[in-house]
Design a protein around this nucleic acid. Sequence first.
DNA 1: CATGGCGGTTATGTATACAAAATTGTGCGC
DNA 2: GCGCACAATTTTGTATACATAACCGCCATG
Lengths: 252, 252
Amino acid sequence: MSAATQTERAGKAIRDLIISGVVLPGERLAEVQLAERLHMSRTPVRSALNTLSHEGLVQALPGRGDAVASFAAADLRHAVELRGLLEGAAARHAAERDLSVFELDQLNRVLKDIDTLFEDSPSEDSAPWKDHVHEYIDLNEEFHRLLVETAQNPVLARLYEQLTKLPFASPSDLVVGYWHLPGSHSKFVAAQQQHWAIVESIATRRGTRAEFLGREHAEITTKALDEMLHGGALARNLMAAVPRRTATAESN
Amino acid sequence: MSAATQTERAGKAIRDLIISGVVLPGERLAEVQLAERLHMSRTPVRSALNTLSHEGLVQALPGRGDAVASFAAADLRHAVELRGLLEGAAARHAAERDLSVFELDQLNRVLKDIDTLFEDSPSEDSAPWKDHVHEYIDLNEEFHRLLVETAQNPVLARLYEQLTKLPFASPSDLVVGYWHLPGSHSKFVAAQQQHWAIVESIATRRGTRAEFLGREHAEITTKALDEMLHGGALARNLMAAVPRRTATAESN
DNA sequence: CATGGCGGTTATGTATACAAAATTGTGCGC
DNA sequence: GCGCACAATTTTGTATACATAACCGCCATG
């Protein structure tokens, strides 16, 4: 039907269960229970849980299966900061190596597309602003992906991928929730200016500037994160480590 | 016998097969074949391969099992540089937070122990120098482990762990091969001075200095790595991506 | 009443049989 | 002789049965 293998289906399904908050942080994930719910055998469930534990979404308990991982607010901030660190390193690597005009064009084109988006809605009150969220997310992710790819550093790319597997560390994870908040428009415009500055630094081979711009770029996300945390706009089901019994039966 | 579960045994065994060069980079790792060799069923082998692919030692081929991962010389350098980046971040975090005297004492004590080692053999010609390798490795690893732990940043710690799972990215992976090369003594002494400088920066809350010292500290390893690469002292079985047929039968 | 062992129960760990997919080899047609 | 399709074989993916270890309540005992 949807995915290729049962294991992939299981991974997606369990991830959704966690992110949507159906299962809460700290809660045990029993194989049989999951297998029943997903209408498959324990084998692919087990395999998926193994993968998810490596990705950090579930915590493996030695000899006692797995539980949903829980994160503190500080963890979110740290993850974003680390993404900035890695993207900064990527920007430096890109700046310090010989990159083709094609690669630079790729980066420029994505940023031009984002510019077009903002020209189309120059303020928060503009009509198309609201509808542009997903276009922006796609383009933003494409830019960050390109940036890491352009560094041509497989080890860095791997580490970056592992970090952004966390459901709040990816470049666009918070965008959808922040887009509609008042004052967000200027933040995204500022972020886009940083995008341009990063590419300019890369094009002119200024590695140090590129690195620090990459790090500073993450600060905007951190700011947005803090606003969302204080305003309660962040309905994250991953954070509160509320212990809850397994409770398959609702008899009480 | 040795380990707790078959899966752990499989993981250890396969890792050894790869690191010792029994199986070469790019070579396919068939489950049945491994299961036979390790005298167990496919299930724990499969589980271990899954884990190893997340650690980066084997590469998962979608739908076609796994193959031994291969690394280029540039990958080794990049891994070391990234370790410096993360240790620098850890040092900064440690410097910028309120750490207890106990934590500082722990760091100081490890460094004092390393000092004792060097006082015991002040030059390469000193008698006990050769025998101190493993003591140094233990203490060095303890220091780097403590440094990351002191940052109190679980996301960073996780990322660091994932990076150092690579068999050449860990702080002491190259030490044993470099120890006996001429001129290494001064390098280790210099590294130890950087250790002290890092702890001093942390103690005096100088985060930026701590971070850059952490990054610079990795440069020594990079230097050592280059020497070993040029001198052929690095008998790594992970690097050459020699394609080889599966060849269970040697009939031809 | 607290505690510690004991057995029932449930969960994970492992083996194996079977299904499906991919690879390889082979033969047919051109 | 070359290429393509098809079948044989191998390999991975999945289900299920069994083994083993962890958990939980109970009862005996101090």
